[in-house]
Amino acid sequence: MRGSRRALRPPWPLAVAAVVGLALFVLPLAGLLLRVPWRDLVGLLTSEVTVDALRLSAVTSTAATVIAAVLGVPVAWVLARVEFPGRSLVRGLVLLPLVLPPVVGGAALLFAFGRRGPFGEPLYRLTGLVLPFSVAGVVLAVTFVSMPFLIVTVEGALRSLDPRFEGAAASLGAGRWTVFRRVTLPMVGPSLLSGMVLTWARALGEFGATVTFAGNLAGRTQTLPLAVFVQLEADRDAALALSLVMVVISLIVLVALRDRWWKAP
């Protein structure tokens, strides 16, 4: 926007604070990029530890995103459309992982689904499945932490969708499932997609809940963020390379969501 000349020059206290604030973001990134061992990058990124972590992170984040979509959309629908007592309580519960320290989330999962936990024990007896310190445990931990992003995004979209479209579909003879499948879902499609991207990004970066519930077993439950943490002690260059990978992925996510977040005022 072209405003007056005066509006272009901020008062100096604001300008100083803004520069410091921006430095807070820029300096760490710059420090990271300055130290990246560009020459050895290919070798570092193809080492066993790195490849394992990359593969595990890709698989678990994607699995968590799919689970979040399949289970989160129904939760969002119920929260947006069904009036029931205690609805705001349920919504609070769903949003809790957004603000809960992930370590606490991991501990809660451990108590519930540990081999002697109230839900883990019957699960083990019935199926022989042990969640802690397993790939399935990683998926459960990252789903727990990341699914709220999907629910919040989709619920918002459902609320802003004009319910008369669904009424119109029903008046044309479509049953409620058909209405959901052919009208509601496609109309919130763009929001569902960006919710999935957000969920995936959050799942990829998950650290606290994962390390608490699934441990840090290289090649088994060691995801990208865990590998970065471990390699900082063992092999600094490998840690830098892995960090670079995550920065690049984050940038890709930002670009993917630009229409949603970067809409120029």
């Binding site: 008369r164 479209f165 119109a168 579909a169 008046s171 044309l172 409620r176 496609p186 109309m187």
Partner: peptide, 29 residues
């Protein structure tokens, strides 16, 4: 329920499904 009534409605702002083509809108019923 509405889907069992056979009551056709032309809504005030038409409420054509924005994600479907004209053909798909008419084929919806």
């Amino acid at each position: 329920p509405p889907e069992g009534r056979r009551v056709g409605v032309v809504f005030q702002d038409y409420l054509l499904f924005p994600h479907l083509s004209v053909f798909e809108n008419v084929a919806f019923g």
